[in-house]
Simulated assay, not measured.
Amino acid sequence: MKVFIEEQKFTQPLVIIGLAIAVIGAIVSVIVRLETISQSNLTEKLTALSGVIIVLLVILLFLNLKLKTRIDEQGIFYQFYPFHRSFKVIPWNTISNLYIRRYDAIFEFGGWGMKSILRKNKGKSYTTKGNIGLQLELNNGDKILIGTQKKEELQRVLNTYNKKAAYD
Rank of each mutant, 00 (worst) to 15 (best):
L65A: 08
K151Y: 08
Q149A: 14
Y126A: 01
L57D: 02
F87W: 09
Y78C: 04
Y126Q: 04
Q8G: 05
D72W: 13
I76G: 04
N64K: 14
E6A: 10
V30W: 04
I146N: 06
I146E: 03
I16F: 13
L134Q: 12
K120A: 12
Y81E: 04
Q8K: 13
Y99C: 06
V58S: 04
V157P: 07
S96F: 01
E35R: 13
L136S: 05
V15S: 07
N97A: 12
V15N: 11
K122F: 15
I21C: 05
I27C: 09
D168L: 13
Q135P: 00
A48D: 14
T94K: 15
I76T: 01
T43C: 00
V58Y: 10
V28Q: 08
K129Q: 12
L67A: 02
K120S: 14
L49E: 08
G18V: 08
G123D: 07
L19T: 14
V30M: 08
F80Q: 05
V52L: 13
E44Q: 13
I16L: 12
L63R: 14
A166P: 01
I117D: 02
G113E: 07
V32C: 01
E152K: 13
F4I: 08
R85T: 04
I100W: 08
V52C: 07
F77D: 12
I90N: 05
P82S: 06
L49F: 15
E35I: 10
I100P: 04
S116W: 03
L61D: 11
V23N: 05
L57P: 00
R33H: 12
G147L: 07
N41T: 09
L46W: 15
T47H: 02
G123L: 07
K164W: 09
F10E: 10
F107K: 06
K66G: 00
I71P: 03
Q149H: 06
S116H: 08
N159V: 04
I146H: 09
L67Y: 09
N41D: 15
I53P: 01
I21D: 00
G113C: 05
T127W: 13
G18E: 03
A48K: 02
E137Q: 13
I31A: 15
F62G: 07
L63Q: 10
Y126V: 00
L158G: 02
I24P: 02
P82I: 10
Q39E: 15
L118V: 14
P82V: 09
L34Q: 06
Y167T: 08
E153D: 14
E7F: 00
L42K: 00
N162T: 05
E35P: 04
V58H: 05
I37K: 07
V157K: 06
E153G: 10
K143I: 11
Y103L: 10
L145N: 03
Q155P: 00
R119G: 00
R101C: 10
V58T: 11
R70V: 15
A22Q: 06
N93R: 11
Y103Q: 03
L65T: 08
T160Q: 12
L49P: 05
L57K: 00
T69M: 11
F80I: 01
L158V: 03
F62K: 04
